[in-house]
Design a protein around this nucleic acid. Structure first.
Lengths: 366, 366
DNA sequence: CGCTTACCGGTAAGCGCTTACCGGAGGGTC
DNA sequence: GACCCTCCGGTAAGCGCTTACCGGTAAGCG
């Protein structure tokens, strides 16, 4: 711990009051727009504030009125070094955070950010420390177990992203079911593919479980053959996607006509894996992703995927957290709509004129 | 402002003290490892803390010991919407922030993040608000004017990134001169190119000015012809780079044999612009970048550039800020070394075996 | 056995702010 | 002219924590 005690010349509200010739109460009132000070008083205070470059201490304000105006955000990072290919997930999280920030700024809140390494052990302690510095916490996917969330939730309000609401915490997620259904329908009905596979994401991710379940039920509903099993286990990374292809082909399996991937990165890996074997996408096997990360449109072929409104996801997470903080209420499980973004990896021709106003793809609200 | 006054059951150190049957002073001492409490006392406190899930209030701690353990970080963002192509600068900033975070975590600090839109007007006010909530501020490139920095600096310690140290603020930057010199030398001496151009970055960026100056002096020193002038004005973006090419060619100018670009994004734009005209890189014109963003190695041709240690830049910024905060001293202008990363856009053959241990490029500390 | 010394731990002050409460001054009313 | 009301603004309490200071107890020593 630093042994700072007191920067010599810390400027306080008393200094401003003295300089303006009023009491500290007046200074505070002017600064916060409370009460109805005389114009003369207001002027004097403002002048003093300006001359002294006074900025009220956030800690003291927070202590006094029980509101820090800070929201903690926690997410995982890969490690000290960036791996190639992780850049994308990076972006994914950052875009969501940007959304949180947009929401936060509307209320004068700032984001207190803490990332946790994949092999950090003291995660709960770190989150606890953050909780002490914030009015509420937004946790990205898979940060804490259900009991961890419950424990944390009686310290500060908690919103999870892409998780599941608990009695104690709120959650915001995208409509995975609709997304997967739209993909399955597009592949099985519009394209008429009769065999489908699904490369999963991390098994501990609620999003992934939901998507897998939706895949199975919807594929069954369309009468398509579906391929599943442990060989189809990916992990949200490009490497995982490529590994699944290698395993499948190595075991001599026949690939289904179309493969849905748990996210865009996985799809990227699968496409690469197939390309290495000379298998053409979409002529031999159609591929789809999920998320619509920025590079999805630049893949070869451009990726058909489901667009998640990432920025809105973040903003919404802040909004429900804020209402929980300020009024104690809040929708506990918000589901945001997704859209089907049709490009070429599903077998559609370049820029079909379906519903598209967008130059680079047709978009269909799923 | 939210009308929260007091979450009903706020747990305080008094509750813990009562539950443990000791005084609040003992609780505080145990929690902070001060003094030498009896084992029995310690146990009782720890048990109570655990049972109650007590987390001390950060605001109260901050107020009491004059240290918030929070560092504010401010940077610019593009707008609500992501433009394509901005993804990279995004990453650039985020990688630096990650570095700051790594440094911060070592000291128990967290990052309070606030981004500012390009057309936000109340920038100083926003930064001031942040200042009140933090022990110090790290400002990315071009956030505040010199006087703005001076004013802010007597509220909290300030570290700027890629700026210039002032009497009141510290700065961390990369060794732009060496980087540019290494590039010029490589192009003019190793390759023997006799005419060079430099596409500039934003004119208000200190980094850019330094690079431009270094380019001119070093190019002159090698005896190469240099092309300059207002037509060579870029703005750090890919679009800017492409525009420079268009302007030059549109005016019927002959391009120099090699073109240095202010950053990788600009180089990306220049390469695209040239490709559109059928001009080959590096056979007709050699191109180099600056920064070594992750995609640089994936361009066609892979980009020869200068690698900035971005993560280290962030960590260093935190370190000097921390020492300023805790001891009032600190190196005021830290310059980090850069390395020349040779790929193919300069005309070198694929993966030359110069000094390279890296599989994808030769790296030379500049 | 009485005194000194060391060691713990409790009491209370104070960090900088917000705001409830109250008192003084000025204007309106009968 | 006395009274009442209104409007401002000052005084002081209190937010939850850290820590200086001090008093009590037990151990050490002659």
């Amino acid at each position: 711990m630093a042994e700072t005690k007191k920067a010599k010349g810390t400027l306080t509200i008393y200094d401003v009051a003295k300089s303006a010739g009023v009491s500290i109460a007046s200074v505070s009132r002017v600064l916060n727009g409370q009460g109805t000070p005389r114009a003369e008083t207001r002027e004097a205070v403002m002048r003093a504030v300006r001359e002294l470059s006074f900025v009220p201490d956030g800690a003291a304000r927070a202590l006094s009125n029980g509101l820090k105006e800070v929201v903690g955000v926690v997410f995982r990072r890969g490690g000290e070094q960036l791996f190639e290919g992780e850049d994308e997930s990076f972006l994914f999280i950052d875009v969501i955070n940007r959304g949180i920030e947009v929401g936060a700024q509307r209320r004068g809140f700032d984001l207190l950010i803490s990332s946790v390494g994949f092999n950090d052990d003291n995660v709960a302690a770190r989150i606890g420390a953050l909780a002490g510095k914030a009015d509420g916490l937004i946790l990205h996917d898979r940060m804490l177990s259900a009991v961890g969330i419950a424990r944390m939730a009686d310290i500060v309000p908690i919103v999870t992203l892409a998780g599941a609401a608990t009695p104690a915490s709120l959650n915001v997620r995208c409509d995975n079911e609709s997304g997967i259904k739209a993909l399955v329908r597009h592949l099985a009905v519009d394209h008429g593919y009769t065999s489908l596979g699904y490369v999963t994401g991390r098994s501990d991710s609620p999003d992934n479980r939901t998507r897998a379940r939706a895949f199975e039920s919807e594929a069954a509903a369309t009468g398509a053959d579906i391929e599943t099993g442990p060989m189809w286990q990916g992990n949200y990374s490009a490497a995982g996607g490529a590994a699944v292809v290698d395993a499948l082909l190595g075991a001599g399996k026949t690939l289904p006509r179309a493969i849905l991937c748990a996210n865009d990165q996985t799809a990227l890996g699968v496409i690469h894996g197939l390309a290495r074997r000379g298998i053409r996408v979409p002529q031999d096997v159609a591929i789809t992703g999920f998320d619509d990360v920025p590079v999805a449109r630049h893949l070869h072929p451009p990726l058909t995927t489901i667009r998640q409104p990432m920025q809105e996801l973040g903003a919404t997470a802040f909004d429900i957290l804020y209402s929980k903080i300020s009024s104690g209420t809040g929708e506990s499980d918000v589901v945001l709509p997704v859209e089907l973004v049709i490009r070429e990896s599903c077998g559609c021709p370049r820029q079909p004129a379906l519903a598209g106003t967008s130059p680079d793809a047709a978009r269909v609200v799923a």
